[in-house]
Design a protein around this nucleic acid. Structure first.
Length: 547
RNA sequence: GCCCCCGUAGCUCAGUGGCAGAGCAUCGGACUUCUAAUCCGUUGGUCGCAGGUUCGAGUCCUGCCGGGGGUGCCA
């Protein structure tokens, strides 16, 4: 800026935003409004009069540097500076995007940082219900977003293979097994009544026959726990694969006790005087690290470490043993208290709380024909993830689960979802992709190929709108990563598909008499197809060539 | 009691301090299509209520109201 245009004043950070409405530029900057007061205060002190925001804007845009992407800048009503992208520059982006869409849209936010996303981690005592599918969708898409933003990502499933619920699970399975041989026994009162337990028992029978009936009393529980766990984990992996979710690592809680991690953690906390005895239990001085006056039970009076102890040891393992720079846990809101306390508690190991981010999402209320289905273990009635995926498909289920913000509760009516699955917006998006593929196929058949020779012919409003929309994807990704909020993706993808379809409706691509224009538009179609595929890929959805 | 989340169009929900949006539903148009799973248009909102901060608040702050969750030697 030329000295003397404006007096010296405190300069705020300059930000631009995307105006919501057309006619306000591609980007808009409110700087004149933000600085007008400070500028005038200085001018007043100098007895040099006053400037209106509009005048300041005029002064500022005269000093904008030349840039090939910038067409023009203008000052608008109260005092905004509206910036317009150059159409020629926009058109050239079609080539850059179709060359390497992933590279074009990728932002290196992570710089190789090692991050773990731990998600689902449902108790391994039965099939995943549809609420767990939300966790799977959020966690998996967060992982995809981070992978595509320069992070080194590991997906982990934490197996709670320790504790009372596993014992109950084992004993229920044992009774179901016995029942298969006509024995008149009942499952434990607090057991798992679901029919799936009978299926597990049948599988055990198929493999082992009646040989397990003769197990010594003290071997029944560990043996059935082991057999059941194996079956459940295999089933979980299958179910998750149906939803296009694959874990890099399945981490056993029990292993923390087998490999000495818990013992080391215990010794360290003891040494730091962070543990004390009270009421027959061992307590952790949480208040020392988190504040407040509440401590946490570490080892229960029955000698069993509590969940807080396991979580401490588990995160010690993540950060100290495995060396992750950043860990993200995807938890349902019913763990909100633990989510608030655990990061602070890690200070006991010298781990900065900021390195653990817990993404909380609200529950999915399941309904069938308008009536709520209680997922109580007692009733044994659940809507499984598999059931839903078989009915509506993984892509539609993902779209539905992802399109709500994490904090919003979802009402899911399976009957409604099945009835409406064909009008799921995900098909609209995929259709736009398949249509692009079709055009490119047809063009190839007529010996027409995308070319960057005459991209300057892309001047229609619909063409430029499509280019602008594609340019927005990196911003959407950055926003989604910054807020760990995957729901921005489905909304953007629908928007992109809409913009594409609008272009398709207005601009005929293949016009043999106009070879130059056709080749330019084919380039645009190719870029749009790649961008749609990239967006769908970030959401873990398929991008079909034909529909 | 204290803490957290939600409250935006008929329905389901977006909205990073800058003139209230999308999908579905409604209503009216367009079909011998480069894939009609389409397009164009229409209807529809005192953004739960009341204050405050700000040039500007759906967005930030405070207090209410309504719904949900948390506050275990369960995880």
């Amino acid at each position: 800026m030329k000295k003397g245009d404006l007096p010296k004043f405190p300069m705020p950070p300059v930000t631009v935003s995307r105006p919501r409405r057309q006619g306000q530029g591609d980007y808009s900057c409110a700087l004149p409004l933000q600085i007008v007061r400070d500028v005038n205060n200085v001018l007043k002190a100098q007895q040099a009069g006053k400037l209106a925001p509009m005048q300041i804007g005029e002064i500022l845009i005269k000093r904008l540097p030349d840039a090939d992407f910038l067409d023009r800048a203008e000052v608008a009503k109260p005092g905004f500076i509206n910036l317009y992208l150059s159409p020629a520059w926009l058109a050239r982006q079609a080539h850059a995007i179709s060359q390497d869409a992933a590279g074009y849209h990728r932002m290196d936010l992570g710089r190789g940082k090692k991050v773990q996303v731990e998600f689902v981690s449902a108790n391994p005592t039965g099939p995943l219900h549809f609420g767990g599918a939300r966790n799977a969708a959020i966690g998996d898409v967060l992982a995809r977003l981070l992978e595509n933003s320069g992070y080194q990502v590991q997906r982990e499933y934490y197996i709670n293979d320790r504790g009372a619920q596993m014992d109950t699970f084992a004993m229920t399975l044992w009774r179901r097994y016995q029942q298969l041989f006509g024995m008149d026994v009942e499952i434990p009162a607090d057991g798992y009544p679901g029919a799936y337990m009978i299926e597990y028992a049948k599988k055990i029978k198929a493999e082992h026959g009646d040989s397990l009936l003769a197990l010594p009393e003290d071997e029944i529980r560990p043996r059935f726990r082991e057999l059941g766990l194996k079956l459940v984990l295999a089933e979980l992996a299958d179910d998750l694969a149906m939803m296009n979710v694959v874990f890099d690592n399945w981490f056993s809680e029990q292993s923390l006790y087998n490999d000495g991690t818990f013992a080391r953690v215990y010794a360290r906390l003891r040494e730091q005087d962070d543990l004390y005895e009270k009421d027959g239990a061992v307590w952790f001085r949480a208040s020392k690290y988190i504040g407040g006056d509440r401590d946490e039970v570490f080892v229960r009076s029955n000698g069993e470490p509590g969940y807080f102890a396991s979580d401490m040891a588990y995160h010690y393992h993540k950060f100290i043993v495995r060396g992750f720079d950043w860990v993200i846990n995807v938890w349902a809101v019913d763990h909100q208290n633990q989510a608030k306390r655990l990061p602070g508690a890690l200070k006991a190991f010298g781990i900065e709380p900021e390195r653990l981010t817990i993404v909380l999402y609200d529950l999915v209320t399941l309904k069938r024909g308008g009536k709520e289905v209680k997922i109580s273990k007692r009733s044994g009635e659940i809507i499984t993830m598999r059931e839903v995926l078989e009915e509506v498909g993984a892509d539609a289920a993902r779209y539905f689960l992802l399109s709500h913000s994490n904090e919003a509760r979802i009402d899911f009516d399976i009957d409604l979802a099945v009835a409406q699955s064909s009008e799921n917006p995900v098909y609209y998006i995929q259709y736009a992709h398949a249509r692009s593929a079709s055009i490119l196929r047809k063009a190839a058949g007529a010996s027409l190929a995308p070319s960057a020779e005459h991209l300057d012919l892309l001047t229609c409003p619909e063409e430029l709108a499509l280019l602008r929309k594609m340019l927005q994807l990196p911003e959407v990704v950055v926003n989604a990563v910054e807020h760990l909020a995957p729901h921005h993706l489905p909304h953007y993808a629908l928007d992109l598909a809409k913009t594409y379809t609008n272009f398709y409706g207005h601009c005929r691509v293949i016009v043999p008499e106009q070879k130059d224009l056709t080749e330019a538009r084919l380039m645009l179609v190719q870029a749009a197809k790649a961008t749609l595929a990239y967006a769908l890929g970030l959401m873990g959805m398929s991008a079909p060539e034909v529909m």
